[in-house]
Nucleic acid binder design. Sequence first.
DNA 1: CCTCTTAATTTGAATCTGTCAAGATAAGAA
DNA 2: TTCTTATCTTGACAGATTCAAATTAAGAGG
Lengths: 142, 142
Amino acid sequence: MDHMDYSAQMRDLGLRVTRGRLAVLDALESHPHSSAERVVIAVHQTLPEVSIQSVYNVLNDLTEQGMLRRFTPPYSAALYETRVNDNHHHALCTSCGRIEDVECAVGHAPCLTPSNSHGMEIQLADVLYQGICEDCRKTDAA
Amino acid sequence: MDHMDYSAQMRDLGLRVTRGRLAVLDALESHPHSSAERVVIAVHQTLPEVSIQSVYNVLNDLTEQGMLRRFTPPYSAALYETRVNDNHHHALCTSCGRIEDVECAVGHAPCLTPSNSHGMEIQLADVLYQGICEDCRKTDAA
DNA sequence: CCTCTTAATTTGAATCTGTCAAGATAAGAA
DNA sequence: TTCTTATCTTGACAGATTCAAATTAAGAGG
């Protein structure tokens, strides 16, 4: 997904195309699963004048419009990614905090249905796998 | 699970049995999926002198010892519950925030295994169902 | 290209959730 | 009952995020 695609998508959504928004999308493209703080750092590499508040605004606006996906692992600030609409899941290393994408076998939501939904109409099943990554296993063993 | 059970469990874990801890456990027993703030409110019904910091301490200590389970729905503060060790999941109404317990078909972790775990040793699969509860469907329809 | 509207951004304060640290208190072992 | 030290209290503090008002700039229309 390059600038042209993102720009077209924003226009389609009735959003103005700004440098800040493109910079946030770029940052998340190259650093998926980033917190707002990390996005700010990445954006400031190329656009040091963009304010922190603006990054928050962009993250919220684009998430609301479905161009970004937001999730919150335990004990973590919110993380963002550009990969949306494929209903993929995440695997978190509880030792080092590393996060990997995990393909969803079904590929669309909801990929699971509860046995008893208590009358709820389930639209989405968010799955967060937790475990120990390869690197941490090696380190722990030592 | 009554006071005697909780007390015994705490002693087994090498924890002192205090009024505050029992009050927190009581509060979560009758109000599952409560935030720290709600626990404070509930605890203060019977023990107004317990400090907020103390409730945070208790929630952290008991969670660390496995007597409480903590989870964080999107856009929410951390929530706590006394139901542990059955690997159950949650269903969140994205309209009103209501949360229901959902039985885990497998009953122990991990109840799901990713297709490609990227070398991670998966220990747990946390599932959060999201949808619209019955009440909100009725209200929205009106 | 210029003008105008208003969405987007900036700035600074404020809020919410939760942690840190030091001294006071009380659980429970001896 | 005494003593040790885990627990609790108090108050300051920090991180993540939001709110609000004034400023700036995207892009539609002329």
